[in-house]
Amino acid sequence: MRYAMAVDTKKCVGCSDCVVACQTENNVPIGYCRDWIVEVVDGTYPQLELEIRSERCNHCANSPCVRCCPTGASHYSDGGIVLVTHDECIGCGACIASCPYDARYPHPDGYVDKCTFCIHRVREGQQPACVEVCPTKCLYFGDLEDPESDVSKVLKKRKYKTLIPEAGTDPQLYFLI
């Protein structure tokens, strides 16, 4: 099993619904977020291009955050989902520094927090909150090892990229372009 997510940049309108849904689903305190929107503008008026991306933890298969965690709080879970065990986290911040995607934040309660791909929902057979809420249906989630999963099917059909592949972390967040 290998969980992954694909983001269709051709459909994403950058509305931030994924951000709010994640906050209310996971009780993320106001002022913090586990996912966010990036807009990249290219060109000169009127020859322009705009790429909009909903970003979050890349749940890398070769995660520097897991490797550098001194207590083992950061670990791989079901299907390669990278998690932080809050009780074991000492809030040292090594993982925050090691993440090329800036996907982690220090929770005010003293531990480091990040996207979990909503593992509590996935285990119940549901989609992550961001995927379920997205009005443009631009997020696809599932098991890459299952050829019938939404994410496998869309990656087979479409051209895609990953972010900062040169970091060698084997990211599992794919952007359809």
Partner: peptide
Amino acid sequence: QKIIGNDEDPHCNGRLCP
């Protein structure tokens, strides 16, 4: 805690906006 769209609703098809 949260508000989630009603799947049967033609206005939102189960997906509320932000």
